[in-house]
Amino acid sequence: MIPAAFEYHRPQDMAGVLAVLEEHGDDARVMAGGHSLIPMMKLRMADVPHLIDLQDVGGLSDIEIGDDSIRIGAMVTQAAIIDHDGLASAAPILREAALQIADPQVRYMGTVGGNVANGDPGNDMPGLMQCLDAVFTVVGPDGERDIPARDFYEAAYMTAREDDEVLTRVTIPLPKGGYAYEKQKRKIGDYATAAAAVQIVKEGGTCASAAIAMTNLSDTPVFSETAGAALVGTSVDDAALKAAVAAMLDDIDPTEDNRGPIAFKKHVAGVILRRAIERAWSRA
């Protein structure tokens, strides 16, 4: 559990970060909280000759709640998400989800940016951000560009971010309606056996809109547009729930691991989604 030797860079601004990335290309990686990258380096599964620590780069740790949207800097920690009262009222699903990530020690170090940028299918924030229709801003040699969370994930650890780009912030349209982040895990600190993020809007007794994303049930987070659509226009009754679950099951592609076989994961995914929808609906 000792990494290979590496060069440690600690630039003071983003220009410095980009300069190191440009100089070393594939040999350089940026590190936010380090809770995914450092274990991989210690296991010598990630070879990172040049490690760029982002912690001295200013302007990446702000949480701004605007009239239409929320902006979260890439270096905002899970603990900061949990502690932010404004966020708790503007987008309570963020706190509900963050409280289910790892344990307090990890949450003091683990960041939103690292969690979404790493592309680990086990991470909770990517699915959550897809549910919330967040946009990720990355900066590279050609300046900034925005990538919708729903288009960001290509495969495990493969994303739309180029190697010479750095994810700097997440922008979330102010969520509306009821919410739930439901996660089954084996123990504290574990990735999800199955997790569901649901944001749902009720008008009259009817579902006006619903967004559903699932975590750790494919090699990427799964935004299930059809599952959400199955609820719209319904009273979220049993038939609608069944339709949403069925639609979701068509979109996921879990693999067998120590958490269990595929049949189990699919079953639990259905149960978890149903519970998440019911809780979100009860809050809508």
């Binding site: 344990d103 084996r186 123990k187 504290i188 600190g189 574990d190 990735y191 120590n258």
Partner: peptide
């Protein structure tokens, strides 16, 4: 309820870290 050293057919240890080897905390 979960703590095991499991092997696959090739004799690879499937539970070689505390991610998969269950060590309960106060929470559990």
């Amino acid at each position: 309820l979960g703590q095991e050293i499991a092997y696959d057919d090739m004799g690879n240890v499937k539970t070689g870290t505390l991610m998969d080897f269950f060590l309960p905390t106060a929470w559990e």
